[in-house]
Structures are given as structure tokens and as C-alpha cells.
Nucleic acid binder design. Structure first.
Lengths: 135, 135
DNA sequence: TTACATTTGCAACTCTGTTGCATAAAGAAT
DNA sequence: ATTCTTTATGCAACAGAGTTGCAAATGTAA
């Protein structure tokens, strides 16, 4: 499916900036930061980029993940997420050498038994080490 | 052990600000943010607090964890961490209601088998949901 | 109590993220 | 194609987090 159609399907207007952002996030399973995205987009206003990413997250096109350095990153959703409901819980791998953040879609997520009184609605796991490119 | 002695043992000078910071972090297993710590400390300069926390982390007195909102939090180390080497890998629980971050010292950490080429040196897991106080 | 090294506080700065408002662009109707 | 309405964009201004350099204050050991 092309980016414009995906955007339209989520009820958002199709603009050149939005299409470009979605196209850049498409190919690999990498979560990109604001700083990485901005130069790839040409002359887009940084505030616009913030708003596009937030809108995309709200309608379920992308998900947000905060890396080990506290940097916010965005990656494409793959499991038919919808507005205000993300279905794509998965592990992330953060390379300590190149700082790339990978979405590990096919790894199982362990369930943890919590102490009495605590109830879990989800979990966020970031595994760190060396990625295939840096090993 | 009292705070002053712990600070001295790590090779840092014992100052009133440092003792106060360590005393506040002592009791519970909670990871506190900068914003939470500052008002508890009286008239301490915010830059000094940044430096104290960074120094404490370097020598293994406290560890840093970034919560689900991207807020940096600090908590006491409990497993004889040393300078530049932390031994206290453990899960964290982030309450989505009161936003408290708990160190879950006694829960087992699952090991994940990664794709070929990837090697893990550690992982950071934050479980979110409702804590015992909010349930 | 003097002297040295370290810590603190201040000023200034960068980076990240948000809000309000005027302008520009998209989408639908004519 | 032209107009109209809604939504998106760009700009300015701001707030918060975090860092660095430097002078003044404090801790520690002699």
C-alpha cells in the first residue's frame, strides 16, 4: 500500500510533508529520532514534523519508543493499529555502537508475575548490545 | 550505613548537598525525577543537583532509568555497584496513574534469543499498569 | 589554620517539545 | 476550473531538560 492511501485511510489529509515522513519510515524496521528525520525531509518546519509524528501516533500509523539515551524515536506500526489503540507491542533492540533502534517484531515477550497489588497493562523492553552491522 | 560514609567510601567529598540527596533516595525503592527531588532539597542549585546525580551514577551509588514519559529518574543501587560498573539490573514498574517508578529487585529477568548477528549485553524493561497504591 | 583540590552557584547556551496565531494548502461543492 | 470551508503549515515565542565555563565557597588533609 502506498503512503498517501494509508494516510487517507486513517482520516488524515494527504499532504506532501506527511507522505514524505511516512515514506522515510517505510522500508526498514528502524525507529528514527527527530534529529535523524529532519535532514531527510528537506525544508520542513520542525514544529510541523512534531505535529505530523504526533498525529501519526494517534491514528496508529507509527509508534513511539524512547531509547536508552532518552531520545524519542518513531517507527512504523505493522499490526493494524487503530486510533488510540496500538496492537504492536514488541521488543526493541538498541545498538550501543551505532545507536540504531530496531523493532524486533518476531520475538516473544515474557510475562512477569508481579507482587500483590500490582497489575500490568503492558511492558516496554529495550535490549541493548551490538547489532548485526556492528558485530 | 549512613549516607556520609557511603559517599566517602566511593571517593567523593562529603558535602551537605550530597548527603541530603542520598538521604532522600534511601528509604523506598522509588526512582525519583529531577523535578521531584528539587523541592525536597531546599535551596539547592539545579545544576548542582544534576552534577551530584551524575557523580553518584558514575561511582555506582545510584542508577538512572528513563520512564515511559521520557523523564529521567534516579534510584539507589542495592547490589554493590562500583565505579563504571553497575550490577543491579532489575525490572522497573511504572504506575500509569500516580506515575511512580518502582525498582522491582526480586523479579526474574527473562533472557531473549536474538536474531543472528545481534548480541545482547543487557536489557531495560519497564512494566506499566497500576501500582498497589492505585489499585 | 593554612593551603590545595574539589564542589557549588551563576550565567549563558543548546536541544527538545509545546502553544497561539496568521497564512497556505487540501478536499468538497458549485 | 472557481470558490468555500476545513485542516495543515510556518513562524514567533515560550517552557523544560541538560551542559559547559568560570569565579567563589567549601571540604579535607597537612
Amino acid at each position: 500500500m502506498n503512503a498517501a492511501q494509508e494516510i487517507k485511510d486513517k482520516g488524515l489529509k494527504v499532504t506532501t510533508s506527511r507522505v514524505k515522513v511516512l515514506d522515510i519510515l517505510q522500508p526498514d524496521g528502524l525507529a528514527l529520532s527527530h534529529m535523524e528525520l529532519e535532514p531527510m525531509l528537506g525544508k520542513i518546519d520542525r514544529i510541523t514534523l512534531y505535529r505530523i509524528l504526533n498525529d501519526f501516533e494517534e491514528v496508529g500509523l507509527v509508534h513511539k519508543v524512547i531509547d536508552l539515551d532518552g531520545v524519542t524515536r518513531f517507527a512504523l506500526c505493522k499490526h493494524n493499529c487503530t486510533t488510540h489503540h496500538h496492537n504492536d507491542n514488541h521488543l526493541h533492540f538498541n545498538c550501543t555502537a551505532c545507536h540504531k533502534m530496531y523493532c524486533m517484531d518476531n520475538l516473544p515477550i515474557a510475562t512477569v508475575s508481579l507482587p500483590k497489588g500490582f497489575t500490568a497493562t503492558g511492558q516496554s523492553t529495550i535490549i541493548y548490545g551490538l547489532c548485526s552491522g556492528c558485530n
